[in-house]
Design a protein around this nucleic acid. Structure first.
Length: 475
RNA sequence: GGUCCCAUCGUCUAGUGGCCCAGGACACCACCCUCUCAAGGUGGAGACACGGGUUCAAAUCCCGUUGGGACUACCA
């Protein structure tokens, strides 16, 4: 039987790195086994879903480099792939479950439930659903019925031991009575996640469910529903949560942890994928850099670690730099263009491309290209505080001398530029470090820039000289 | 409270009874290179949570303790 795995995000809010990491594993698993990967939108709770959120999920996955064979946007043999559009299917299966006696109407109101939960807790007893409506007498039932009480449908969990043969956690056992009857259809008639996942995984022929381990306890419930429907439950693999840099579960206060946020910071998708793949999984004892192809070839769910991993932004940044270094110049230039444009700059393509070799090994993010290269695409190079100090210290005479020397540099190449710079420095008894910094400050407006001669060569003789003269005037 | 999961350097991890007085990567420190910043090179510090077993031998197996976490919803 060929593998079919899926990723089923609930599109409330944005896709954070913990979610995608799980999706990435599921995808890599399907690709590794030459199987099919399905994207399904888990939107049974309509109130928490927005259209943009659904789009955002698809966008983020695509950008990362994950593709799927069936999904809401590409269709497939088991369409539709949005649970909100499968209500008729859930209704039909609910009818069947009801006829079989696997579910029963529960007339308890939310208030009553809450009250009993509190009471149970106070008595030191387990707070789960007490099963009251499971054993209603026919009289009680008709009484509620006559009252016109709204009811939810609960699945009667068979009271036996449930064993999950989990691909990452191993054998997990739940004793009889520890799994309570759960709501499968709300009183407004809408299905819950507990019904929808089971039905969809079965109907869509999912063979392997790879998801977060917060869902471990729902695996036996999912399996119970599928069995009641006459199906065979899929294999489960519950991967641990991703924690924030502080070791605490990922939450809003960790700030920008969405895929979209990393994209906007200038993280390259190849790097994010590589980094995420290594969060809770490893190929062997030494591999840290691996391509998408290598990931697919090597991925094995059995090698997924069973303990939670903390997200380390520093390592991601390091990896991002490694990927940027290996991008070819045209590609890198194209990727930086977006960030430069966002900053209001209109880079000249040839110049931008020529600057790539200069910044490659310096960029931790694509966004940083803006800081390094701004001076090439605007004459507005108001020196920052440190740069100003350098300029003042050098003095007007020095800057004028530099301007003169550079104006005379012929032809305008890194060699002649460096020679001119050195000549001025030497004449004033300065070494390169002290002699070049004022020029850098005056021309780029910063004490930090790509290598000076190369930068000036790209800028051109005229802007270089006039910026130096302007700075001399301003002293 | 109950059920379940988890526990190797600061972080991600390798390790499935002897190859481990524990290997790699990021981060950190030092040095080298050097026009700034990086990148790169070399070296360094740094971990088996604790306590009991089992065994000739345990990071590896068992039990307990402690510490994290999830679930315990008419959220998913």
């Amino acid at each position: 039987m060929s593998v079919r795995s899926r990723f089923a995000p609930a599109p409330s809010g944005s896709l954070h790195v913990g979610n995608v990491r799980t999706g990435l594993f599921s995808w890599a698993f399907a690709r590794h086994h030459g199987g099919a990967f399905v994207l399904r939108v888990e939107d049974t709770d309509a109130s928490r879903v927005t259209e943009e959120a659904v789009h955002g999920v698809i966008e983020s996955l695509r950008w990362l480099g994950i593709d799927w064979d069936e999904g809401p946007d590409v269709g497939g043999p088991h369409a539709p792939y949005r649970q909100s559009q499968r209500t008729q299917i859930y209704r039909d299966t609910t009818d069947r479950l009801r006829q079989q006696g696997d579910v029963y109407p529960c007339y308890c109101t939310p208030e009553e439930l809450e009250e009993r939960r509190r009471a149970a807790l106070a008595r030191g007893e387990p707070p789960g659903y007490d099963g009251r409506c499971r054993n209603l007498t026919p009289e009680e039932r008709t009484a509620f019925e006559a009252e016109g009480r709204p009811f939810a449908l609960r699945f009667a969990m068979p009271e036996r031991e449930w064993v999950v043969e989990d691909l990452v956690k191993g054998e997990v056992r739940f004793g009889p009575g520890t799994l309570r009857d759960f709501v499968i259809v709300r009183s407004d008639g809408s299905p819950t996640f507990l019904l929808a996942v089971a039905v969809d995984d079965m109907l869509m022929g999912i063979t392997h469910v790879i998801r977060g381990d917060d869902l471990l306890a729902s695996a036996p419930r999912n399996a119970a529903v599928i069995e009641a429907l006459g199906g065979t439950p899929p294999r489960y693999a519950h991967v641990p949560q991703v924690l924030g840099g502080d070791g605490k579960p990922l939450s809003k206060r960790h700030g920008s942890t969405s895929v979209e946020a990393f994209r906007e910071q200038g993280i390259v998708p190849e790097a994010l994928m590589n980094y995420l793949a290594l969060l809770g999984w490893s190929k062997d004892e030494k591999t840290t850099l691996l391509s998408k192809q290598e990931l697919i070839e090597a991925f094995d769910v059995e090698r997924v670690s069973s303990n939670p991993a903390a997200f380390d932004t520093k390592k991601l940044l390091w990896m991002n730099n490694r990927y940027i270094q290996h991008l070819d110049d045209d590609d890198l230039a194209a990727r930086c263009m977006h960030f430069l444009a966002e900053d209001g700059l209109l880079p000249e393509p040839q110049t931008l491309r020529g600057a790539m070799p200069l910044v490659k090994e310096r960029l931790q993010t694509l966004r940083e290209s803006v800081d390094y290269l701004r001076f090439l695409f605007t004459d507005d190079v108001e020196p920052d505080e440190k740069a100003r100090a350098q300029i003042e210290k050098a003095g007007a005479d020095y800057l004028r001398a530099a301007a003169d020397a550079l104006a005379a540099a012929e032809p305008w190449t890194t060699a002649t530029i460096a020679a001119a710079l050195d000549g001025v420095a030497q004449a004033h008894g300065l070494n390169r470090t002290k002699g070049w910094q004022p020029v850098r400050a005056a021309v780029t407006g910063s004490t930090v820039s790509p290598p000076l001669p190369e930068s000036l060569e790209l800028l051109g003789t005229e802007p270089t000289v006039s910026r130096l003269r302007a700075a001399a005037e301003a002293v």
